[in-house]
Design a protein around this nucleic acid. Structure first.
Lengths: 215, 215
DNA sequence: CATGAGACTGAACAAGCGTTTAGACTGTTG
DNA sequence: CAACAGTCTAAACGCTTGTTCAGTCTCATG
């Protein structure tokens, strides 16, 4: 049934080809800026077939959401229970095969998607658990508000992906390339190890300010 | 000529009213999802007048970019040369008057805008200078790559604004309210003071891994 | 008063959008 | 063979989009 692969994914089902094209284009330009016709053209298919398989453009989006979420969770879920470092190194070693999925994931989180929000909340949960585990093992600091700290650490890990364009621009790379990630790794670890401030004056000042506002 | 103010800004020029409406709607829904007709309607004006004053929708966007950038730079530039803490407290004390401008700024940075990119690069520059100054004064740690560390710290300061929806959701607030910012302040300072890791094992492991890759 | 410039609008334009419809073509099942 | 179910397309639908055009109104200037 399946002929020889031509130009990447010509051997896929038309439905899969549409979804793949949608992930590519949605990831590059966003949902609103991408037309059903453009997706159909890239998939080598008529616009009507998109609707036939996915009901509507919105239905296609939700199918892509579910697919990418499943893809990234199934392949990364086990690895994620280890540490941040190991996951980052896996991404460093990975070629640009997952690039489109990561671009789409970024759009999912930035544009309002229920699946993206749930995914993000799960990431915060995991980070929070990681903080508690690290604190009990004595490897990580103890914080007054583990939930909010988990949120902050999760954001810190995610933000290079979400702002890959600006990160690439500042580092002199194009987007979030392997070289850019490499430049990011050491400073991130330094910041997380030594902290930014040498003393606790700024922290104490904030504590005092907050107590005076809400006693 | 100007009658009594009705509903906020009925006393403004039509041109200013259009720009104000555009900042509101672009900030809420993004550039692509906002129509010229919707902007004209909110400004109490015909769609043709928008084109008459700004040339095109793209021209209106650039005018908004320039206005918001100027507004935030003129009022905040002097304050920004102090420290991050002071600026954050100013925002905490501010009412929701600047909320629309901040929403628009967020869109400017997330969607591809040249003005937004330049603004971001300037923020990184300032943060980098702040790090060098803090290190010389002995208040901040010394880092191996000041530029990249400046990028990271700038990102960390910006990310709650860019992801206000998710932050609000996790913290049980609606968006980046004053209460949400208050919940964020102490954990942020804790993280920047104590760091995440108690020891330097993770940092050394990364250093070793990077040297083995690129000797 | 006449003239011209600018603010402003209603109506219409062409283009693109997501979606629908009717039907052709395939392969499978009774 | 006949009937069905699924895949797929060409054409067109109604709607929204950004923009243009012709013309009105107001007001300052000569």
């Amino acid at each position: 049934m399946c002929s020889a692969p031509l130009g990447g994914n010509a051997d896929l089902t038309a439905k899969a080809r549409i979804r793949s094209a949608a992930i590519n284009l949605f990831g590059q330009a966003g949902f609103a800026r991408t037309s059903v016709r453009a997706i159909a053209a890239q998939a080598g298919v008529s616009p009507a077939l998109v609707v036939h398989h996915f009901g509507s453009k919105e239905g296609l989006k939700q199918a892509c959401d579910q697919y990418v979420a499943g893809e990234l969770l199934d392949t990364e879920a086990a690895a994620y229970d280890q540490d941040l470092l190991g996951t980052m190194q896996r991404w460093l070693a990975e070629p640009a095969a997952f690039a489109a999925e990561f671009d789409y994931l970024s759009r999912m989180i930035l544009e309002g998607s229920e699946t993206g929000d749930v995914l993000f909340e799960r990431l915060v949960d995991r980070t929070e658990a990681l903080l508690e585990h690290g604190a009990q093992a004595g490897q990580m600091s103890r914080f007054s508000d583990v939930r909010t700290t988990g949120l902050l650490v999760a954001l810190m890990g995610l933000v290079p992906l979400l702002m890959s364009r600006q990160v690439g621009r500042v580092l002199g790379e194009s987007g979030l390339s392997a070289a850019a990630l490499q430049k990011l790794a050491l400073p991130t670890l330094e910041l997380l190890t030594y902290g930014l401030y040498t003393g606790s004056e700024a922290l104490e000042a904030t504590r005092a300010a907050m107590k005076s506002v809400e006693p």
